[in-house]
Design a protein around this nucleic acid. Sequence first.
DNA 1: CAATTGACTTGAT
DNA 2: TATCAAGCCAATT
Length: 128
Amino acid sequence: MRPSSSFNAQVYALVRCIPPGKVLSYGRVAEMLGVPHGAREVGWALSALKQARNEPPVPWHRVLNAQGRISIKGSPEAALEQRLRLEAEGVVFDEHDTLDMSRYQWNPSPPELAALLQRIRAETSGRD
DNA sequence: CAATTGACTTGAT
DNA sequence: TATCAAGCCAATT
């Protein structure tokens, strides 16, 4: 579990930067972290979150699939919780339980993102 | 070490 | 617009 633990930490750090009422897709998170095809890894990192203590709390509910739909499998309760948390932040799902990604997806400006990534990398480089 | 699985994505039917 | 199949990558069995 060596190499990816640092990746997980980066995922958590980045997800913590998503503003309330905004969301990110798994693939987008992976892409931002420099792993273009690491969408499933991001899902893995987040699923591991429920057993690993996370402080400060990671707003895992702000991450869903590229279609704008909740993608939690095997736990309807968790899926419902995710939806409720999002709606509590003002996000509105349409009649197909889908949300408009073009509207809700978080799009930081390139310089802002670069600075963010730099800080995240500094944060997660030493610890493990 | 091979097969299976999963909070994914994309492109073809 | 809805389904299917094939990639992808780490963790588990």
